[in-house]
Design a protein around this nucleic acid. Structure first.
Lengths: 187, 187
DNA sequence: GAATTCATGTAACTTGTTACATGATTTA
DNA sequence: TAAATCATGTAACAAGTTACATGAATTC
């Protein structure tokens, strides 16, 4: 459902192969929507069958031929219609396995939970570095007046990523403290 | 996959019907994991077939008989094994339709995006009220020394919900400001 | 009188993941 | 020499949603 519109949106920037779409997603939407290559090919097939996109073959030597997809007017309309038809309930539920585990963690030693929280913090630190790196490059480009409309909106989602990661980090740190406090009260 | 362990965890607190499990989830895990009743019944069937839980019938008048499920030792072991076998990658990706929409929102009028962000903020305010209400009740109970091990871990996930909602709110507010700034620069 | 709660379950469908199949070129 | 990159696709499976079927008691 959603992947369909991500593909239309990416092709609306410029024509690409399925493989290109996957690469583009890895550096952008992957932070809030992932897709396997196999699924991308399936969706591309459906989109072409419905006349939202068209394709042409670019022969290559030594590699499989490239199948380059281009968005059609019908596809552009489909994308914009979806964007304007905003759902009533905004975030159904972001499923989160980590929180499920914490919810039932009374059943494992506290040291294990603390260890996993620390591991999570380290992972978040790495993510934050990547995000702030991208952010700086965007800010530089923006000062040069090089920010496109797409770039601006993509930057909004990046800012959300940075805010999210920071808030997760402080929560994880506070949780470790709370666990230590709780432990000493119990012990 | 995850629902299986949520059900085992909830039954590990006390025996319940499928309907009870759904009700319990609505007030707790629903913030990070939802499930339809139909899916809960399917999982309960599988768990019983595998000997993780057992059931007995409690006849009722005017309503369908209750089928009360109880966790067995094999089920408790299955749950603890899962809790201790922590995955390498902690959060694969929390899929987020709202961010997908923002990412491609260059294609709709800015006023529409601002409106949706405002709607999101209002939704978050409501959520925050619910969360802080629960939090206060928990803090009171904790002062009375009434906090169970399960309650403590559940509270950690609640605190995460509060932090998340607050961070989303400030991001959404900042985004609206950035859109106004961007607009005036463009116009 | 309509909607909600209580209570169970099946069937059909959608979406997404993992595994498999193929194969040359480039990099570590 | 092993792994990664480029490039396409199918098949099997897993998970979750929506619709359907049933029906009394209670609340608005």
């Amino acid at each position: 459902m959603i992947l369909k519109y991500i593909i239309l949106g990416i092709l609306d920037i410029k024509p690409r192969t399925g493989y290109d779409i996957k690469t583009y997603m890895s550096n952008s939407t992957n932070f809030f929507w992932t897709a396997e290559l196999s699924q991308i090919y399936i969706e591309l097939g459906k989109l072409e069958a419905k006349g939202f996109i068209s394709s042409h073959i670019e022969p290559q030597e030594g590699k499989p031929d490239k199948k380059i997809y281009t968005i059609l007017d019908k596809g552009k309309k489909e994308l914009v219609d979806w964007l304007r038809d905003f759902p009533q309930k905004i975030n159904k539920t972001a499923r989160n396995e980590f929180l499920v585990r914490i919810f039932f963690s009374a059943r494992i030693p506290k040291e294990e939970l603390v260890y996993q929280l620390q591991r999570y913090i380290r992972q978040l630190e790495e993510e934050l570095e990547i995000y702030t790196g991208i952010d700086e490059r965007i800010r530089l480009a923006a000062d040069d007046g090089k920010m496109s409309d797409d770039g601006f909106h993509q930057w909004l989602t990046l800012k959300r990523g940075i805010g999210f990661v920071k808030s997760e980090m402080s929560w994880a740190r506070e949780s470790i403290e709370e666990i230590q406090k709780y432990k000493s009260k119990q012990g």
